[in-house]
Amino acid sequence: KHICAICGDRSSGKHYGVYSCEGCKGFFKRTVRKDLTYTCRDNKDCLIDKRQRNRCQYCRYQKCLAMGMKREAVQEE
């Protein structure tokens, strides 16, 4: 069993190059498709875990990228 590289929830498989849960997969897809931009209200180092993953979209998206999620993979779907 794999866990989500972004928030630690149960992974549903590899999405956009990274083991991730449905929540983070959908979040990344929406962000890329709609070309959304986020801002962090703190120091750009918010904790992203299962409980708090919805608290800061900026940091969640940065963690998706840092863990290796690929924007191109969304476009190719």
Score class of each variant (00 low, 15 high):
residue 30 R to M: 04
residue 15 H to G: 07
residue 1 K to D: 09
residue 72 E to N: 07
residue 38 Y to M: 13
residue 58 Y to E: 14
residue 42 D to V: 03
residue 68 G to W: 02
residue 12 S to G: 15
residue 21 C to S: 00
residue 67 M to H: 09
residue 33 R to Q: 08
residue 40 C to V: 01
residue 19 Y to W: 06
residue 72 E to H: 05
residue 37 T to A: 13
residue 33 R to W: 11
residue 21 C to Q: 00
residue 59 C to K: 00
residue 58 Y to N: 05
residue 57 Q to T: 06
residue 70 K to M: 08
residue 66 A to I: 08
residue 74 V to L: 07
residue 8 G to E: 11
residue 43 N to G: 14
residue 37 T to Y: 06
residue 40 C to I: 01
residue 9 D to S: 04
residue 49 D to K: 13
residue 46 C to G: 03
residue 16 Y to G: 12
residue 38 Y to D: 05
residue 23 G to H: 05
residue 45 D to M: 02
residue 24 C to S: 00
residue 24 C to Q: 00
residue 68 G to E: 05
residue 14 K to T: 08
residue 7 C to M: 01
residue 51 R to W: 08
residue 18 V to A: 04
residue 70 K to Q: 10
residue 44 K to Q: 08
residue 73 A to M: 14
residue 32 V to E: 13
residue 59 C to Y: 02
residue 13 G to A: 13
residue 41 R to H: 15
residue 66 A to F: 12
residue 69 M to W: 10
residue 66 A to L: 14
residue 20 S to Q: 12
residue 19 Y to R: 05
residue 2 H to A: 06
residue 46 C to E: 03
residue 18 V to P: 03
residue 24 C to R: 00
residue 19 Y to Q: 07
residue 41 R to N: 07
residue 68 G to Y: 03
residue 47 L to G: 12
residue 39 T to C: 14
residue 47 L to P: 08
residue 5 A to K: 10
residue 39 T to D: 14
residue 15 H to L: 04
residue 2 H to F: 07
residue 65 L to N: 15
residue 54 N to D: 04
residue 57 Q to R: 11
residue 22 E to I: 10
residue 51 R to V: 08
residue 5 A to H: 14
residue 66 A to S: 12
residue 39 T to F: 10
residue 45 D to C: 07
residue 53 R to W: 11
residue 20 S to W: 14
residue 57 Q to P: 13
residue 40 C to G: 01
residue 59 C to D: 01
residue 44 K to G: 14
residue 67 M to E: 10
residue 12 S to H: 04
residue 19 Y to G: 03
residue 20 S to H: 12
residue 42 D to N: 13
residue 31 T to I: 05
residue 72 E to D: 14
residue 15 H to E: 06
residue 33 R to C: 03
residue 37 T to E: 14
residue 11 S to A: 07
residue 3 I to F: 07
residue 77 E to N: 15
residue 51 R to M: 09
residue 5 A to E: 14
residue 5 A to C: 12
residue 74 V to H: 09
residue 22 E to A: 07
residue 6 I to N: 02
residue 31 T to D: 01
residue 28 F to V: 02
residue 47 L to T: 12
residue 73 A to L: 09
residue 36 L to T: 09
residue 59 C to A: 01
residue 19 Y to N: 04
residue 59 C to F: 00
residue 47 L to K: 07
residue 10 R to M: 05
residue 70 K to P: 13
residue 24 C to D: 07
residue 12 S to L: 13
residue 37 T to L: 07
residue 4 C to H: 01
residue 49 D to T: 06
residue 53 R to D: 11
residue 14 K to S: 08
residue 32 V to M: 09
residue 50 K to T: 05
residue 24 C to Y: 00
residue 12 S to T: 15
residue 15 H to F: 06
residue 16 Y to H: 09
residue 43 N to I: 12
residue 6 I to W: 01
residue 15 H to Q: 10
residue 25 K to N: 03
residue 40 C to E: 02
residue 44 K to R: 09
residue 9 D to P: 01
residue 3 I to G: 03
residue 29 K to D: 10
residue 49 D to C: 04
residue 46 C to F: 02
residue 67 M to A: 12
residue 45 D to P: 06
residue 59 C to Q: 01
residue 3 I to W: 02
residue 13 G to F: 05
residue 41 R to T: 13
residue 41 R to V: 10
residue 76 E to A: 13
residue 23 G to D: 14
residue 46 C to A: 04
residue 6 I to T: 06
residue 26 G to Q: 14
residue 8 G to A: 09
residue 71 R to F: 12
residue 72 E to K: 01
residue 76 E to N: 13
residue 76 E to C: 13
residue 72 E to A: 09
residue 67 M to S: 12
residue 45 D to T: 07
residue 8 G to F: 12
residue 23 G to M: 02
residue 12 S to Y: 03
residue 50 K to L: 07
residue 8 G to W: 05
residue 68 G to A: 03
residue 29 K to T: 13
residue 66 A to M: 08
residue 65 L to A: 08
residue 24 C to T: 00
residue 75 Q to I: 10
residue 72 E to R: 09
residue 71 R to W: 07
residue 57 Q to N: 07
residue 43 N to W: 10
residue 39 T to L: 07
residue 21 C to F: 00
residue 14 K to Y: 03
residue 71 R to S: 11
residue 65 L to G: 04
residue 65 L to H: 06
residue 73 A to D: 14
residue 14 K to Q: 11
residue 54 N to S: 03
residue 8 G to T: 12
residue 17 G to H: 07
residue 51 R to L: 13
residue 71 R to H: 10
residue 40 C to F: 00
residue 59 C to T: 01
residue 45 D to S: 09
residue 58 Y to I: 01
residue 3 I to E: 02
residue 65 L to K: 10
residue 51 R to C: 07
residue 57 Q to D: 14
residue 37 T to S: 09
residue 24 C to P: 00
residue 45 D to R: 11
residue 7 C to G: 00
residue 32 V to R: 03
residue 30 R to L: 03
residue 36 L to V: 12
residue 49 D to M: 03
residue 53 R to T: 15
residue 32 V to G: 07
residue 41 R to I: 14
residue 32 V to N: 12
residue 13 G to Y: 12
residue 3 I to P: 06
residue 21 C to I: 00
residue 10 R to W: 08
residue 2 H to I: 15
residue 66 A to C: 05
residue 26 G to E: 08
residue 70 K to R: 10
residue 51 R to N: 06
residue 38 Y to H: 13
residue 45 D to Q: 12
residue 49 D to G: 15
residue 8 G to Y: 08
residue 36 L to I: 13
residue 57 Q to G: 13
residue 16 Y to I: 10
residue 44 K to H: 06
residue 17 G to C: 11
residue 72 E to M: 06
residue 47 L to A: 11
residue 43 N to M: 13
residue 32 V to S: 06
residue 1 K to C: 03
residue 23 G to V: 04
residue 26 G to F: 04
residue 6 I to K: 00
residue 57 Q to K: 05
residue 57 Q to Y: 06
residue 48 I to F: 05
residue 38 Y to I: 08
residue 8 G to R: 04
residue 77 E to W: 14
residue 58 Y to V: 02
residue 2 H to Y: 10
residue 38 Y to F: 15
residue 5 A to I: 15
residue 46 C to K: 03
residue 76 E to D: 14
residue 15 H to T: 03
residue 66 A to P: 01
residue 65 L to M: 07
residue 19 Y to A: 08
residue 57 Q to E: 08
residue 73 A to T: 12
residue 48 I to S: 08
residue 17 G to W: 04
residue 68 G to R: 03
residue 33 R to K: 14
residue 75 Q to W: 04
residue 28 F to A: 02
residue 76 E to P: 07
residue 69 M to N: 01
residue 53 R to L: 08
residue 31 T to P: 01
residue 6 I to H: 01
residue 50 K to A: 14
residue 39 T to Y: 11
residue 47 L to M: 07
residue 37 T to K: 15
residue 5 A to S: 13
residue 39 T to A: 10
residue 12 S to F: 05
residue 14 K to P: 11
residue 37 T to C: 15
residue 74 V to I: 10
residue 32 V to I: 06
residue 44 K to D: 15
residue 22 E to D: 07
residue 22 E to F: 05
residue 10 R to D: 07
residue 4 C to K: 00
residue 15 H to K: 04
residue 46 C to P: 04
residue 13 G to M: 08
residue 43 N to T: 14
residue 77 E to C: 12
residue 75 Q to L: 09
residue 23 G to P: 04
residue 69 M to P: 01
residue 2 H to Q: 09
residue 73 A to F: 10
residue 70 K to F: 14
residue 36 L to Y: 07
residue 29 K to A: 14
residue 76 E to H: 10
residue 76 E to G: 14
residue 33 R to S: 06
residue 29 K to R: 11
residue 53 R to M: 06
residue 8 G to I: 03
residue 2 H to V: 04
residue 12 S to N: 15
residue 29 K to M: 14
residue 50 K to P: 09
residue 26 G to M: 06
residue 8 G to M: 06
residue 14 K to C: 09
residue 41 R to F: 13
residue 1 K to W: 02
residue 14 K to A: 09
